[in-house]
């Protein structure tokens, strides 16, 4: 179902995908019951692709992301990175958590520099990298503040900077811009696309906003709940930067909206 048939990608789809989910099912024990969070999901992602996952609450978006990160293992099926099963979390897959997960005892700068420092980069390099990404997410003034002194949106930006500063190959983002104001969100969307292109990142980005998905993604993967599954995988072939007022954009918006609405 996920085989890309169109010609432009024919070359890349022949090479090994960076990530591949093969019939992945995830069940959770919930008291005496079993909840199927994700059912028979198959997905193939090439290096450098920007994937947006959209779908209603509870359809397994976070679950899929957490399995790619290596925090959960699949109940059935397999998850491969460069053809090898994902066994554990690692710095090649950075995650921006829905609830931030910042280290409360570290300042903004120290949180951002945490990854490089943990991986033994030289002090000067850690400091320079941290400063660059703190500036990038617009937190220069709060570089020495602790997480409890920041607003939700600011914490979210630290979480993003922390993963970008760590040079991950795959960046997993769980509704990273949900808590931001429209202005900051637009700016960070641009920054993210910029970094994605420059650093050749592979991004899986969870969002509830259809428009955000169309602005960002190469492919929008649509999921539906009960049990969570993948119902569509749409390629967005618009040139960037994308204009949300264009007719093509609107047509896509209507199309995706229909896909989502039809599965409630």
């Amino acid at each position: 179902m996920d085989d890309v048939m169109a010609a432009p990608r024919a070359v890349t789809s022949a090479v090994l995908p960076i990530l591949e989910a093969q019939h992945v099912t995830k069940r959770f024990a919930f008291g005496a019951e079993t909840i199927t969070a994700l059912s028979d999901a198959s997905l193939r992602i090439d290096k450098g692709e920007f994937i947006c996952l959209i779908g209603p609450s509870g359809c397994g978006k976070s679950t899929l992301l957490r399995m790619v990160a290596g925090f959960e293992s699949a109940s059935e099926g397999s998850l491969l990175m460069w053809g090898k099963p994902v066994a554990a979390p690692g710095p090649d897959r950075g995650m921006v958590f829905q609830d931030y997960g910042l280290f409360p005892w570290l300042t903004v700068t120290q949180n951002v520099g945490f990854g490089p420092a943990a991986r033994g980069r030289p002090k000067a390099e850690v400091a320079a990298t941290a400063r660059r990404f703190v500036d990038m997410v617009g937190l220069t003034r709060f570089a020495d503040a602790y997480p409890h002194q920041l607003s939700g949106g600011m914490k979210q930006r630290v979480a993003i900077a922390r993963v970008l500063a760590n040079d991950a190959e795959v960046v997993l983002m769980d509704e990273p811009f949900g808590a931001l104001d429209a202005f900051t969100r637009e700016r960070l969307q641009e920054e993210l696309l910029d970094i994605w292109a420059k650093a050749k990142l592979t991004v899986i980005f969870v969002t509830h906003a259809i428009e955000e998905a169309i602005i960002l993604a190469d492919r929008v993967v649509v999921m539906s709940p009960g049990p969570g599954r993948i119902v569509a995988d749409e390629r967005i072939d618009l040139a960037r930067p994308r204009d949300p007022t264009s007719p093509e954009f609107n047509a896509l918006r209507r199309h995706l909206s229909g896909l989502l609405g039809g599965h409630h």
Binding site: G94, G101, F103, N166
Partner: peptide, 24 residues
């Protein structure tokens, strides 16, 4: 969540205690 954050940032198992458990 802090263990997950440390793991995905590349903290080794041995370093988890000093980097996460103790400060937390």
């Amino acid at each position: 969540r802090l263990f997950e954050a440390a793991a995905m940032l590349g903290v080794s198992r041995q370093a988890i205690f000093w980097k996460v458990v103790l400060p937390a």
